[in-house]
Design a protein around this nucleic acid. Structure first.
Lengths: 92, 92
DNA sequence: ATTAATTTGTTCGTATGTATC
DNA sequence: TGATACATACGAACAAATTAA
């Protein structure tokens, strides 16, 4: 029997990993899984808030982590988008 | 009837064993007894402090002992957790 | 042009637990 | 023992820009 190692789809509030890091791992996994195609926003902060039962402040911390990693970029009042590694031109 | 030989659940301040070693033995016993499942924090330092009538410093000394033994690991701002011997992957 | 809904930005306050002195 | 700092999480409120009806 082999258990897959990877982020679950629920947050463990008791575990050693902080919730915002867990969510970051989940988002990373969902990006790689192809849940959110390039050029389109990922789920909004509010949606993630509801989906994973977290405070928005916590969700934003996760997003900031991934932005700093270069995985996501945020467009104010528009949405949060996956960084397209194959697209190195972002003038517009 | 058989009485188990092992650490009591109270601290003997007069005996030959130092309190922090007694507490370490107690925690070891409680871990083996299954009081604190893997993935969940054991009692906080404050709780242990109150529960066994010890100073915070003493409790921390016990925990450090068990951390050095590889029995526990401490996650800053989250808690102290039992080491899961069956889980040798802790990158994420 | 107006309005309402959506989305990110910002800032409080409260709580818990550890780190350090 | 006590005091202070730090990291994290939750909740709530409001601002500001965007978008769609």
């Amino acid at each position: 029997m082999h258990m897959e190692f990877g982020p679950d789809d629920t947050i463990d509030h008791e575990g050693p990993l902080t919730p915002y890091r867990q969510l970051a791992a989940i988002i990373r996994a969902r990006l790689e899984r192809g849940d959110w195609p390039t050029g389109r926003p990922i789920a909004s902060e509010t949606q993630l808030t509801q989906e994973y039962g977290l405070a928005r402040t916590t969700v934003r911390r996760s997003i900031k982590l991934l932005v700093d990693e270069g995985v996501l970029f945020v467009v104010p009042h528009r949405g949060t988008y996956p960084v397209d590694s194959t697209q190195w031109d972002r003038e517009n």
